[in-house]
Design a protein around this nucleic acid. Structure first.
Length: 179
DNA sequence: GCAGTGATCATA
DNA sequence: ATGATCACTGCC
Protein backbone atom coordinates (compact mmCIF):
# COMPACT_ATOMS: atom_id res chain seq x y z
CA UNK A 1 0.00 0.00 0.00
CA UNK A 2 1.30 3.43 -0.95
CA UNK A 3 2.58 5.70 1.74
CA UNK A 4 0.86 9.08 1.97
CA UNK A 5 2.33 12.45 2.77
CA UNK A 6 3.28 12.80 6.42
CA UNK A 7 1.31 15.57 8.10
CA UNK A 8 3.56 18.34 9.41
CA UNK A 9 3.21 21.30 11.76
CA UNK A 10 1.39 23.34 9.09
CA UNK A 11 -1.52 20.92 9.28
CA UNK A 12 -1.75 21.01 13.07
CA UNK A 13 -1.16 24.73 13.57
CA UNK A 14 -4.83 25.55 12.95
CA UNK A 15 -7.92 25.60 15.18
CA UNK A 16 -8.64 22.26 16.88
CA UNK A 17 -12.07 22.00 15.27
CA UNK A 18 -10.66 22.17 11.75
CA UNK A 19 -7.92 19.69 12.58
CA UNK A 20 -10.38 17.30 14.27
CA UNK A 21 -12.67 17.33 11.25
CA UNK A 22 -9.88 16.87 8.72
CA UNK A 23 -8.19 14.07 10.65
CA UNK A 24 -11.17 11.87 9.83
CA UNK A 25 -9.98 9.52 7.10
CA UNK A 26 -6.29 10.25 7.64
CA UNK A 27 -4.06 7.37 8.65
CA UNK A 28 -2.62 6.99 12.11
CA UNK A 29 0.72 5.23 11.66
CA UNK A 30 2.64 3.29 14.27
CA UNK A 31 6.00 1.61 13.90
CA UNK A 32 6.96 -1.02 16.46
CA UNK A 33 9.95 -3.32 16.04
CA UNK A 34 10.15 -2.58 12.32
CA UNK A 35 6.48 -3.30 11.67
CA UNK A 36 4.28 -0.44 10.51
CA UNK A 37 0.56 -0.38 11.20
CA UNK A 38 -1.67 2.14 9.40
CA UNK A 39 -5.12 2.74 10.88
CA UNK A 40 -7.65 5.09 9.27
CA UNK A 41 -8.90 7.57 11.84
CA UNK A 42 -12.68 7.43 12.21
CA UNK A 43 -13.41 9.30 15.44
CA UNK A 44 -11.94 12.47 16.97
CA UNK A 45 -12.81 15.16 19.49
CA UNK A 46 -11.65 18.78 19.63
CA UNK A 47 -10.60 20.48 22.87
CA UNK A 48 -10.45 24.02 21.68
CA UNK A 49 -8.62 26.12 24.24
CA UNK A 50 -8.47 27.48 27.80
CA UNK A 51 -12.04 28.80 27.53
CA UNK A 52 -13.25 25.24 26.85
CA UNK A 53 -14.39 23.93 30.24
CA UNK A 54 -13.89 20.35 29.04
CA UNK A 55 -10.27 21.00 28.05
CA UNK A 56 -7.62 20.05 30.61
CA UNK A 57 -5.92 23.38 29.94
CA UNK A 58 -9.00 25.16 31.28
CA UNK A 59 -7.44 24.60 34.72
CA UNK A 60 -4.28 26.34 33.63
CA UNK A 61 -0.75 25.33 32.80
CA UNK A 62 0.41 22.39 34.92
CA UNK A 63 2.98 19.66 34.51
CA UNK A 64 0.42 17.58 32.63
CA UNK A 65 -1.06 20.28 30.40
CA UNK A 66 2.24 21.98 29.65
CA UNK A 67 2.61 20.19 26.32
CA UNK A 68 -0.63 21.72 25.05
CA UNK A 69 0.89 25.17 25.48
CA UNK A 70 3.83 24.23 23.29
CA UNK A 71 4.18 23.87 19.53
CA UNK A 72 1.48 22.04 17.52
CA UNK A 73 2.03 18.58 16.11
CA UNK A 74 3.23 16.98 19.33
CA UNK A 75 1.50 14.16 21.18
CA UNK A 76 -0.30 14.74 24.43
CA UNK A 77 -0.72 11.37 26.17
CA UNK A 78 -2.17 11.01 29.64
CA UNK A 79 -3.52 8.24 31.85
CA UNK A 80 -7.25 8.12 32.52
CA UNK A 81 -8.92 6.13 35.29
CA UNK A 82 -5.60 4.61 36.24
CA UNK A 83 -5.42 2.28 33.24
CA UNK A 84 -6.21 3.85 29.88
CA UNK A 85 -3.82 5.99 27.89
CA UNK A 86 -5.49 8.78 25.90
CA UNK A 87 -3.80 9.95 22.71
CA UNK A 88 -4.14 13.58 21.64
CA UNK A 89 -2.30 15.74 19.14
CA UNK A 90 -1.57 19.36 20.05
CA UNK A 91 -3.10 21.92 17.68
CA UNK A 92 -3.27 25.67 17.13
CA UNK A 93 -0.70 28.33 17.87
CA UNK A 94 2.09 27.94 20.36
CA UNK A 95 0.96 29.44 23.66
CA UNK A 96 -2.70 28.71 22.98
CA UNK A 97 -3.49 25.30 24.51
CA UNK A 98 -5.72 23.08 22.39
CA UNK A 99 -5.67 19.47 21.22
CA UNK A 100 -7.56 16.75 19.36
CA UNK A 101 -8.32 13.43 21.05
CA UNK A 102 -8.08 10.38 18.79
CA UNK A 103 -10.97 8.14 19.81
CA UNK A 104 -11.03 5.57 17.02
CA UNK A 105 -8.83 4.32 14.20
CA UNK A 106 -8.81 1.13 12.17
CA UNK A 107 -10.34 -1.71 14.12
CA UNK A 108 -9.86 0.11 17.40
CA UNK A 109 -13.05 1.70 18.72
CA UNK A 110 -12.60 3.76 21.85
CA UNK A 111 -9.60 5.88 22.90
CA UNK A 112 -8.31 3.38 25.46
CA UNK A 113 -8.50 0.45 23.05
CA UNK A 114 -6.77 2.51 20.36
CA UNK A 115 -3.72 3.17 22.52
CA UNK A 116 -3.61 -0.38 23.83
CA UNK A 117 -3.84 -1.79 20.32
CA UNK A 118 -1.03 0.41 19.03
CA UNK A 119 1.20 0.13 22.13
CA UNK A 120 0.97 3.83 22.93
CA UNK A 121 1.89 5.01 26.43
CA UNK A 122 3.33 8.02 28.19
CA UNK A 123 6.56 7.23 26.32
CA UNK A 124 5.03 9.14 23.38
CA UNK A 125 3.99 12.14 25.48
CA UNK A 126 5.53 15.43 24.31
CA UNK A 127 7.15 13.81 21.28
CA UNK A 128 6.46 15.17 17.80
CA UNK A 129 4.22 13.30 15.38
CA UNK A 130 6.87 12.14 12.95
CA UNK A 131 8.30 9.06 11.33
CA UNK A 132 11.32 9.36 13.59
CA UNK A 133 9.30 8.93 16.78
CA UNK A 134 7.44 5.89 15.47
CA UNK A 135 4.03 7.55 15.67
CA UNK A 136 2.77 9.85 12.93
CA UNK A 137 -0.20 10.66 10.67
CA UNK A 138 -0.32 10.40 6.87
CA UNK A 139 -2.62 11.79 4.27
CA UNK A 140 -4.76 8.97 2.92
CA UNK A 141 -5.22 8.05 -0.70
CA UNK A 142 -8.94 7.72 -0.23
CA UNK A 143 -11.12 10.78 0.07
CA UNK A 144 -13.96 11.14 2.53
CA UNK A 145 -17.33 12.36 1.33
CA UNK A 146 -18.13 15.51 3.34
CA UNK A 147 -21.57 14.16 4.26
CA UNK A 148 -19.97 11.03 5.69
CA UNK A 149 -18.46 13.04 8.56
CA UNK A 150 -20.92 13.54 11.40
CA UNK A 151 -20.74 15.69 14.51
CA UNK A 152 -22.07 15.00 18.01
CA UNK A 153 -21.43 16.16 21.54
CA UNK A 154 -18.20 14.95 23.10
CA UNK A 155 -18.19 11.81 25.26
CA UNK A 156 -17.70 11.84 29.02
CA UNK A 157 -17.45 15.58 29.57
CA UNK A 158 -20.61 16.28 31.60
CA UNK A 159 -18.38 17.94 34.20
CA UNK A 160 -17.88 20.81 31.74
CA UNK A 161 -21.45 22.04 32.21
CA UNK A 162 -24.44 22.09 29.85
CA UNK A 163 -23.01 24.58 27.37
CA UNK A 164 -19.58 23.12 26.75
CA UNK A 165 -20.57 19.47 27.11
CA UNK A 166 -23.30 19.87 24.47
CA UNK A 167 -21.14 21.47 21.81
CA UNK A 168 -20.76 19.26 18.71
CA UNK A 169 -17.01 18.90 18.90
CA UNK A 170 -16.91 15.15 18.23
CA UNK A 171 -16.37 14.00 14.65
CA UNK A 172 -17.38 10.57 13.36
CA UNK A 173 -16.84 8.82 10.07
CA UNK A 174 -20.10 7.10 9.20
CA UNK A 175 -19.58 5.86 5.63
CA UNK A 176 -22.70 3.72 5.64
CA UNK A 177 -25.07 6.43 6.78
CA UNK A 178 -27.96 7.20 4.46
CA UNK A 179 -30.52 9.99 4.60
C1' DG B 1 -25.73 -1.01 36.27
C1' DC B 2 -20.90 -0.17 38.44
C1' DA B 3 -15.89 -1.49 40.05
C1' DG B 4 -11.12 -1.20 38.86
C1' DT B 5 -7.02 1.62 38.96
C1' DG B 6 -3.33 5.22 39.76
C1' DA B 7 -1.59 9.85 38.10
C1' DT B 8 -2.70 14.43 38.93
C1' DC B 9 -3.83 18.51 41.33
C1' DA B 10 -5.88 21.36 45.01
C1' DT B 11 -5.84 21.80 49.75
C1' DA B 12 -3.38 21.78 54.10
C1' DA C 1 0.26 14.13 53.27
C1' DT C 2 -4.44 13.41 51.95
C1' DG C 3 -8.53 13.12 49.19
C1' DA C 4 -11.39 14.00 45.02
C1' DT C 5 -11.47 13.53 40.40
C1' DC C 6 -11.18 11.36 36.05
C1' DA C 7 -11.74 13.01 27.73
C1' DC C 8 -12.67 4.59 29.95
C1' DT C 9 -13.50 -0.33 29.71
C1' DG C 10 -15.28 -4.75 30.88
C1' DC C 11 -18.07 -7.45 33.37
C1' DC C 12 -22.43 -7.81 36.30
Amino acid sequence: MAQGRILEAAFFSRPALAVARELIGKELCRSVNGTIVRAPIHETEAYVGPEDRACHAHRGRTARTDVMFGPPGRWYVYLCYGMHWMLNVVTGSEGLPAAVLLRGAGDFAGPGRLTRGLSITKAQNRRPASRRTGLWIEDAARSIAPDAVHQTARIGVAYAGPDWSARPYRFLWSPRDHT
